[in-house]
């Protein structure tokens, strides 16, 4: 019930913010509504839904995720790794950035450094070859790419 109220509050705030954001949009023409039409309908939908969720929260039963202690830190580390990847991949190339991401994630999952290295060395060049050479999808070449 508590989580529904939090969700309802977030949805309500989102609806209000969305409505405010559309106030600068150009107005309607004589024969049609303007660009704010659909976003404003959605803003009202969010506000009404948010209020309904706050007023009538449903018991959530047993659905809450049970996370292992310390795993939230692992999720945060994985997200940080992904953000870092998106920042450096264009410079270093897929092989290095993807290799670091895969190796780090393997270690994060509790693999030994040998297994992590093996997975990285097999997986990353294989994916690069499949996409770049076989399928013709351009991945960042960087320092080691071909």
């Amino acid at each position: 019930m508590k989580s529904d109220r939090i969700l309802g509050t977030l949805v309500l705030i989102g609806g209000i913010a969305l409505y405010i954001a559309t106030m600068d949009f150009p107005g309607a023409a004589s024969n049609r509504p303007g660009p704010a039409f659909l976003p404003r309908i959605l803003a009202v939908l969010f506000m009404v839904s948010g209020i309904l969720l706050i007023l009538h929260p449903k018991p959530t039963g047993n659905e809450k995720e049970e996370s292992q202690p310390g795993n939230r830190v692992k999720v945060a580390a994985m997200i940080a790794g992904l953000v870092l990847y998106s920042m450096i991949a264009d410079i270093t190339g897929f092989l290095i950035a993807g290799g670091c991401l895969t190796f780090g994630f393997c270690l994060l999952l509790g693999n030994s450094w040998r297994v992590s290295l093996l997975v990285t060395v097999v997986l990353v060049p294989s994916v690069y070859t499949i996409f770049s050479t076989v399928l013709g999808v351009v991945l960042p070449v960087g320092w080691l790419g071909w």
Partner: peptide, 19 residues
């Protein structure tokens, strides 16, 4: 095993989004 599979899935998520 998940600890081998998950890195592969993550890498495909990254490459698939970029492609």
């Amino acid at each position: 095993p998940r600890r081998i599979l998950l890195p592969g899935i993550l890498l495909f998520c990254v490459v698939g989004s970029f492609a």
